[in-house]
């Protein structure tokens, strides 16, 4: 059973605010969804599944062949909510008071 307090906690972790009316709805839906996916906890799964190595692996790209420096700077800067030249402006997070 999910509780409203749990859903509120999850929302806080996910940086989302859930209004009280929605909280009740989400909590009820959570119960139904978790009851359904909860069938997984009842399954007898083989022990060796985590030993199997899929053929598609080691997917990190090698370093190298960077694009030309600055090629995307103007386009990216345009998307910034606020900027100072090429720098992204953000809120001051350390106060000097």
């Amino acid at each position: 059973m999910a509780t409203a307090a749990e859903v509120k906690k999850l929302a806080a972790l996910a940086r989302i605010k859930v209004e009280d009316a929605e909280l009740e709805k989400f909590t009820k839906e959570f119960d139904a969804i978790l009851a359904y996916v909860g069938q997984l906890t009842q399954l007898d799964l083989p022990q060796d599944v985590h030993e199997e190595k899929p053929l598609l692996r080691n997917v990190m790209r090698e370093d190298g062949e960077p694009h030309v420096s600055g090629a995307y700077t103007a386009k990216l800067t345009e998307q910034f909510p606020a900027h100072d030249g090429d720098a992204l402006s953000v809120k001051q997070i350390i106060s000097h008071d």
């Binding site: 999850l10 996910a14 996916v37 599944v49």
Partner: peptide
């Protein structure tokens, strides 16, 4: 809704019961 669900199934108390079992199911 899905962000909250995802946060739940990955949280420390539930990751074994949900996420890791679901991941094992993929191999099965």
């Amino acid at each position: 809704r899905r962000i909250l669900l995802g946060t739940f199934v990955l949280s420390s108390g539930y990751i074994d019961a949900y996420y890791r079992r679901a991941d094992a199911m993929r191999t099965v």
